[in-house]
Amino acid sequence: MTTVTMTVNGKTVSGEVEDRTLLVEFIRENLELTGTHVGCDTSQCGVCVIHMDGKAIKSCTTLAVQASGSQITTIEGLATGDELHPVQKAFKEHHGLQCGFCTPGMVMAAVDMINRLGPNLDEATIRHELEGNLCRCTGYHNIVKAIKAAADEMAALPQAAE
């Protein structure tokens, strides 16, 4: 067992974990933040995407001990109080979700995409950048629209919202 300490959504947390404990298990089971999901066992589907030190990662292929000392943001920490992040708002406004299971990972990946590449994203870039996130409900059509709309909105903001 190892003690891990990290900052999750602005709060310092620590816990005792087996060395083999995955970051997603620590987040879901120890911290009871169940917005981050598990959808596969080969790091393909992206429903577990969170931000570690400002970058999107798959928390199903990261050990909790690797994340010790890092800054973590999960879907629960994306909004500022009641003010939703522009990407969250856009997913609702453009019907970019149906069952909602892939949504947290999609939103976190989209925020990272906009942070990384800047807000001037075209459809082909968005589709390519989503290769690590699967959705079985929406056919991606409205997810792509939502990300484009959020990027456009964020371009108009003085700085990126995260």
């Binding site: 169940t34 629960e76 609702k92 909602g100 947290p104």
Partner: peptide, 18 residues
């Protein structure tokens, strides 16, 4: 617009494994 969306976009959905 969907009434159910808020919980899903904020990570507050409640699925069986949760």
């Amino acid at each position: 617009l969907r009434k159910e969306d808020k919980r899903f976009i904020t990570g507050a959905g409640r699925y069986t494994d949760d």
